[in-house]
Amino acid sequence: MLVYRVFPYLDAAAPGEPGHPLYEHHPQRGGRIDHPEYYVWYLARHPEGACGESFGNIGRWSDPMFEFPAMPGARRAIGTYEVPDDLRICDLDDPRQLDRLGLRPTQVVTRNLGVTSAWGHRIWAETSPPVDGKLWQAVQWWSFHKPTWTILASWERPEFIGLEILTLEHPAIRAAAKALYRPL
């Protein structure tokens, strides 16, 4: 299955370095289910979802939002990745999973890191002896910005397929801006 991610891209970055499409930033801070002991790949099922998640808090979208000052020369890009079709995903849009986990929808979508990292760690720690010891390889939920966008957090590294540098004319930016009523 193809998935998408917005990240700061630096053309000269080697694998493993900041700015590379497969760079893993340790420790992460501030993502919905971040935890210092494991890395999470935040991905979206649709390109506009990745853009909307990345820029949704900005009221007016303009070219400077694609710059990444913490990394001189970097510009935000959208990466296309692939995860296996049989990836074991805990779907929090399934009421049975919410019930099983004792979660309310508001606990999933809240922007309270203490709440979301707790349920994220609980899902990550669920075990299943017949399959590598872990029951889940990923968890998915709906976007805070637009519930029809599915967000995926994978504990498995996706395969990098390709990237496109983002501009205001990029189709995914235009679609996300339209969906979120953001002026360009």
Rank of each mutant, 00 (worst) to 15 (best):
G49V: 03
D93Q: 14
Y42F: 09
E169C: 04
D85H: 11
V115C: 08
V3Q: 12
A175Q: 11
E53W: 04
R88Q: 13
G162M: 11
V3W: 13
P171L: 00
R60L: 15
P27K: 03
G162T: 07
I173G: 03
P147F: 12
A74N: 02
L113C: 09
T148L: 01
I161D: 11
T80C: 08
H25R: 15
L10I: 03
H26T: 08
S128Y: 13
Y39Q: 03
L166C: 03
P158Q: 02
Q107W: 13
A138D: 11
P105K: 01
R96M: 06
I173P: 02
H170I: 04
D86L: 10
G56H: 01
A138N: 06
T127G: 14
P72W: 01
P129R: 04
F55I: 05
Y81N: 01
G59H: 13
R182T: 04
W119N: 03
E37F: 14
L103A: 04
D132T: 14
I161P: 06
G73M: 03
P36G: 07
D94C: 00
R45L: 15
E17W: 00
A176C: 05
G30E: 08
D85T: 10
H26G: 02
A176Q: 04
Q97S: 11
R122L: 03
R76C: 14
A14T: 02
H121P: 00
G120C: 04
Y23P: 07
R96N: 08
D86W: 06
S117C: 13
V109W: 12
A153G: 15
R45S: 15
Q28E: 13
V3C: 15
P27H: 07
V115N: 06
L2K: 14
V3F: 08
I161Y: 02
A125Q: 11
D63K: 09
S128M: 13
G30N: 09
F160E: 12
P27R: 12
G19Q: 05
P158K: 04
S143N: 01
A14H: 09
I161F: 02
H25I: 11
Q107C: 05
I58N: 04
H35D: 12
L103F: 00
